[in-house]
Amino acid sequence: MIAESIVAVVPQGSRVLDLGCGDGALLARLQAERGCQGYGIELDDAKVLACMRRGVDVLQLNLEEGLAIFADDSFDVVLQLDTLQNLRNTTAMLRETARVGRLGVVSFPNFAHWPNRLSVLRGRMPVTRALPYQWHDTPNIRVGTFADFEVLAGQCGLRVLDAFGLRDGQRVGRWPNLRAATAVFTFERG
């Protein structure tokens, strides 16, 4: 599901790089509805093929190897949606995101969402829509919270422009660290 509030932060006509673009649905939509152009990066064969079928310009690259292929400031917007938690080199990737794009947009599952807290209080790792995996087979190697990211952004020299939570695709403004399943941050180089 593509949250309207994420589509909304991408300015009309902007050049977009979508890191971990999946099946390319978001890019296809940004191209069709917002006159954007750009590329998606995806590692998975099936998803690369899905992007090709949509006519999305997908590059099959491993994000763990960085973004050296892109020049500084080559995009208006770099999206890193539901990807951060799968990457080993989190801080390097955030710096790279800020280097190649003027605006960075990151989203990731908020581990401090209250059902997750309840689950851990009960002694079990959470399994929810945003965190659908069992602890032993999850691809999410970085689990963090909305509040954690605010700290990390500072450490990576990012200036946070906007931060909000998402629950069922709806924007959560108040107490996002407790009330949002997904954390969304937009930022630029500090």
């Binding site: 050049r15 152009q37 590329y39 064969d45 690369v48 992007c51 090709m52 999305v56 310009d57 997908v58 590059l59 099959q60 690259l61 292929i69 892109f70 020049a71 080559s74």
Partner: peptide, 21 residues
């Protein structure tokens, strides 16, 4: 191949790239 992709990206040319295992 990635060198070619980079050259195209630097020109903002439309390119897709598949790296088949």
């Amino acid at each position: 191949a990635r060198e070619i992709v980079k050259a195209l990206l630097d020109n903002r040319i439309r390119v897709a790239y598949a790296e088949i295992a």
